[in-house]
């Protein structure tokens, strides 16, 4: 098709003023609206956990061990008689804390190194790209087990592990965006007018990055939840008696034959949360860039 009339000129720069329109587009897709609703619910549950939970999540009651779901304990009790529902609710808190801290840390590290790589001399760029590839080459779960063994299991270790494993994604996005902008006409023009690169990055880089980074965070949260629950399942993540979906899964796994309801219910929020965040990420990406919405999934 040569007809130039069919080629629609398009702008690559979403401005902050468009955020209202983006939010409207997001909410107008069923997947976006439902996943956004569920995520807000998760955050509400996490924030108000002490108010929502019917029981103390770590109070043990040996006489009520491994009870099936009942009117008192809606989702039953675990091997120490603790209320499964209350533990799930506090587990939500753990999951979101780890998810936000981990992706936040990864974003900061990736952002800084990505800027250095994109703006710095060629050799630094090559070195950082190589370092990035090397970090990705380390097998996540085994590497995490090694780190936990050296430094001991704690929230800090968990945060470092997640930051290290997720930072390469942010590094790549930021670096590529910086490289694109470095050669973009309007940036070159502004530089010729004497604008400093710091000012440049603030005015051009950040608005261009917000969209892709938000999408990346939404897509990474399921992965982080997977890592946290995986490590906790192996007993190397969140430590008992603290409630986490992974530790509950691990306890439920130990009593799979006697009390299957523990593992079954502990897995459910992991499934729902990962699905919700994935759909939300997709809907967010389509809302930010409606052109390719149908062609890209």
């Amino acid at each position: 098709m040569t007809d130039a009339s069919l080629a629609v000129p398009r702008s690559r720069r979403p401005s902050l003023g468009q955020s209202g329109a983006i939010l409207r587009r997001l909410a107008s897709s069923p997947a976006g609206a439902i996943s956004l609703g569920f995520i807000l619910l998760l955050f509400a549950v996490a924030i108000f956990a002490p108010l929502v939970a019917p029981f103390d999540p770590i109070a043990i009651a040996p006489r009520d061990r491994m009870q099936p779901p009942s009117a008192v304990h809606w989702l039953g009790t675990d091997q120490l008689g603790r209320d499964v529902l209350s533990r799930l609710i506090f587990g939500t808190r753990t999951a979101l804390q780890v998810a936000l801290a981990g992706t936040g840390g990864a974003f900061l590290v990736g952002m800084c190194l990505g800027m250095v790589s994109g703006l710095g001399p060629k050799w630094i760029d090559s070195l950082l790209v190589l370092l990035n590839d090397s970090l990705k080459a380390l097998p996540l779960i085994l590497f995490a087990l090694a780190l936990v063994s050296i430094y001991g299991p704690s929230m800090v270790t968990l945060g470092v592990i997640i930051t290290l494993s997720m930072a390469p994604g942010y590094f790549r996005v930021v670096r590529n965006q910086v490289l694109v902008l470095r050669n973009a006409d309007y940036v070159v023009a502004a530089q010729a007018m004497g604008a400093s690169w710091l000012r440049q990055s603030m005015t051009h880089l950040l608005p261009n990055l917000i969209g892709p980074i938000l999408v990346l965070i939404a897509m990474d949260i399921p992965a982080v939840i997977g890592i946290e629950s995986g490590l906790s399942f192996l007993g190397q993540g969140v430590q008992p008696p603290n409630a986490s979906w992974g530790t509950m899964l691990s306890e439920g796994y130990a009593y799979l034959r006697q009390a299957p309801h523990i593992a079954l219910t502990a897995g459910a929020p992991i499934v729902l949360a990962t699905i919700a965040f994935t759909f939300f990420g997709e809907a967010l990406r389509d809302a930010l860039d409606p052109r390719g919405a149908g062609d890209r999934r």
């Binding site: 897509m219 399921p222 992965a223 939840i225 997977g226 629950s229 995986g230 399942f233 899964l249 439920g252 796994y253 799979l256 593992a263 897995g267 992991i270 499934v271 990962t274 699905i275 965040f277 994935t278």
Partner: peptide, 9 residues
Amino acid sequence: ALPSFLMAI
């Protein structure tokens, strides 16, 4: 995004 160990369980 489903964790494989959960699917395993």
